[in-house]
Computed example of a mutant assay.
Amino acid sequence: MPATPHLDDIVNQLSDDGYCIIPNFLQAPFAARLHQYANAIPSQFWSTAAVGRAQQQTINTMVRNDRIRWLTDEHEPESAYLAIMDELRIWLNRQLFLGLFDYECHFAHYPSGAFYKKHLDAFKGRSNRRLTTVMYLNENWQDEHGGQLVIYGERGQVLKQVKPERGTLVVFLSDKFVHEVLPSFRDRLSITGWFRLNASISGIVDPPR
């Protein structure tokens, strides 16, 4: 059995539905520590989030207006979070044979009024992003604060509307589910990441961030 709780729940829900929502995936003290850590990162280390990947990236604040900072193994508690997600990667490969090669993620800060309109994280055959993950770090989030993640079905119907509550993990197939972040009316912090397939050629990871 894996050391981290809920991994079997993730496997079962992904197998059935292609997405899952796991409250309290992170223990409250560690989620609070991540929130405190992210809030303490100086503003010059954050960048305006772009739309698209690699050479096609552009800044379009009509589509999204959050700010991001990529996580690395160089700092605690970033490395601790990455270790948890690597355990999840290994377990998903073992149980579902997904061939997940690596994981990348960033903090996402939505100040009051920020949003991210409907989009798809990957297009079939055009990206190595296989699974999207979102971890929420916000305490005492109320419905009136907005900022919900909306996941849509193939016919455009709303499948789930997720409140960004501390410790909740969302995982879904990157090339299947259109989703959006509704406007937030208070500061909103999360960690967004992607498990990726190995589409490398001559040692160059494809695509880069």
Rank of each mutant, 00 (worst) to 15 (best):
P2W: 01
P5Q: 05
D9R: 15
D17P: 02
Y19V: 00
C20K: 07
I21M: 02
I22E: 05
Q27H: 02
F30R: 14
F30C: 12
A32E: 03
H35A: 09
H35L: 12
N39L: 10
A40F: 13
P42I: 12
T48W: 08
A49R: 13
R53M: 04
A54I: 08
A54H: 11
Q55Y: 09
Q56D: 04
T61M: 06
M62T: 15
R67E: 02
L71W: 08
P77F: 02
E78I: 10
A80N: 13
Y81S: 02
D86G: 11
L92I: 11
L92K: 08
R94G: 03
Q95S: 11
L96A: 00
F97N: 11
F101S: 08
D102Y: 08
E104H: 07
F107D: 00
S112N: 10
A114I: 09
Y116K: 10
H119K: 09
D121N: 09
R126M: 14
R129E: 05
R129V: 07
R129F: 13
R130N: 06
L131A: 08
V134H: 09
Y136D: 01
E139A: 03
E144L: 15
Q148C: 08
Y152N: 14
V162H: 03
K163R: 15
G167R: 07
L169R: 11
V170H: 06
V171C: 04
F172N: 03
F172T: 04
K176W: 14
K176I: 13
V178K: 15
E180W: 10
V181A: 11
F185I: 04
F185P: 01
F185K: 06
L189K: 04
T192D: 00
W194E: 01
L197G: 00
G203T: 07
G203E: 05
V205T: 01
P207M: 01
